[in-house]
Amino acid sequence: MKANALVKIGLSQRIFGVGPQVAEKLCSKVGIYPQMRMSELTESQILSINKELNNLTIEGQLKQKINENIQLKRSIGTIAGMRHASGLPVRGQKTQNNSSTARKLNHLNRHV
């Protein structure tokens, strides 16, 4: 993480599963002021951020959870699961043109 980045931005950009709002909530819970930079964090604050992050489903756990959900949809034979398997948009988008993102991302093992 960049040393001069705002804490809430640094957290949301680097940790999978922590978005801007979660990062802001986390900061307010720990008592970090909104304009605080990464370099200004004390050791105790870093520890308390870590403690809060442990209670969240992030990074590997979250990726695994997403993969499991896709797998479940596939195994029970839902349309969403089949669309994932065929690498096509899941939520009713058109496919004649512009489904490149879905073709790129929608797989059974999305996060490997």
């Binding site: 802001e24 909530k25 307010s28 819970k29 008592g31 002021y33 909104p34 304009q35």
Partner: peptide, 8 residues
């Protein structure tokens, strides 16, 4: 303010 309580 821009500040939030611990309960957000």
């Amino acid at each position: 303010t821009e500040y939030k309580t611990t309960d957000f």
